[in-house]
Nucleic acid binder design. Structure first.
Lengths: 222, 222
DNA sequence: CCTAGTTTTCGCCTTCCGGTTGAAAACTGA
DNA sequence: TCAGTTTTCAACCGGAAGGCGAAAACTAGG
């Protein structure tokens, strides 16, 4: 029962880690989590665990990632971890305990147990889903400029995307809607940027956009 | 620790189920599985469990599906199930025990516990991945005609796909290679069909084919 | 007020991919 | 040889994505 909570902060993809106080692996950084209660399911449980580290109302998305179960992934008695991916929209800065901090996924500190592998798996999942679903809404604040969104996607994906294209693709899918407001330009000038938000109906993950669609846009039964 | 093992048989997507002999839910059909041993990980374990029902060498693909953990998903003490998706290529007919049989996913019998939901989740996963990855190889026999492949995809997806298009899409991705052989036509005549196979390097699941690609086909670092 | 510089926005063009159609190819059976 | 069947393939179309550059809307400095 662990979660890799990811957020884009300062233009890089970061993960929430806490520093272990006791052995084993004292001083190393590990993912927040805890054990499953007897009367809760894993989704409920991970949100309860996360509440100790971060304001769960700021989590825009939580999903199961994978079960990690190598027999000696932690010393001592066997522990099975159900790992989750959590996403916090950029711009928020939830309070975290003293032993807890954000770290760049690209420059992880010494991590405990197999937690580095879990973080990397989470990053892979995020990158895939950013491409073929509308998951981007969980990384973005309520209102943003296209440039800001482009920085978000670039940081999460690890390569620069085109702002023009990003806007077009998301718009065509009906996910982006203008708020009507604009942001005043910075000290170096420039045209004021329009603000956008993700459409309400886009606020949960939808099916991927399928290749090999049914013919004639209808699902012809067999 | 459960698996939904899917195969396309007789032009429909089917799942391997066994009939429970004892209470609770005696007489109902349930997914193969068992409990995790102390010195194995979940992947190893599910393959061991499945070996009791089906020749595991015939499984072309096994992947984690999700953890099912509702507190009362089974009567009595709490049981957490890590569910897997398994795929058997069409054409094979592995021996199964007497209490075990294939059932159409579209016409499931009375199932035990929450197993119907697990099967449906497995079908959803398969359908998604067929569209945006190369997972098709795990449903297809070593050699097949385009028509046969089209029937496979149609059965799995639940709607008819175009043979022309299927061939082009898979070819363009470099997944399909001709064997050079042809199959003699049936009793009603027709041009002999060429046989194809999935390319070797396509025999494991690759990344999805991403929208929002990096510019210039290179991954330009940040 | 005008001009140079900056940033965003938008239209246009090109390429590529998937969907569709129809004709050609290669067989069977009469 | 001809009609019927099935597979294969070329060609076309529309739509989606990538790329480019001009226009828009600002700041700062003369």
């Amino acid at each position: 029962m662990l979660a890799a909570v990811l957020q884009v902060r300062e233009n890089s993809l970061q993960v929430l880690l806490w520093r272990r106080g006791r052995e084993p692996d004292a001083g190393r950084w590990s993912l927040p989590g805890g054990s499953l209660g007897t009367s809760e399911d894993v989704e409920t449980s991970i949100r309860r665990q996360l509440a100790e580290k971060v304001d769960v109302r700021k989590l825009a998305h939580v999903e199961q990632l994978a079960v990690f179960s190598a027999p000696h992934r932690v010393p001592g008695p066997r522990v099975i971890a159900t790992a989750f991916l959590g996403l916090v929209p950029a711009g928020l800065d939830p309070e975290v305990p003293d032993d807890t901090d954000w770290h760049q996924v690209d420059a992880l500190p010494e991590t405990a147990f197999d937690h580095e592998a879990i973080v990397l798996r989470a990053r892979t999942r995020l990158r895939s889903k950013l491409s073929y679903t509308n998951l981007g809404f969980a990384l973005a604040p309520p209102a943003f400029t296209i440039s800001a969104l482009r920085e978000l996607y670039s940081a999460a994906l690890g390569y620069r995307v085109s702002a023009t294209n990003l806007q077009r693709v998301l718009s065509r899918r009906g996910l982006l809607e203008p708020t009507g407001e604009t942001l005043p330009p910075g000290p170096s000038g420039g045209r004021p940027a329009a603000l956008f938000g993700f459409a309400e109906h886009g606020m949960q993950v939808t099916d991927p956009f399928a290749v090999l669609r049914p013919p004639n846009a209808d699902r012809i039964p067999l």
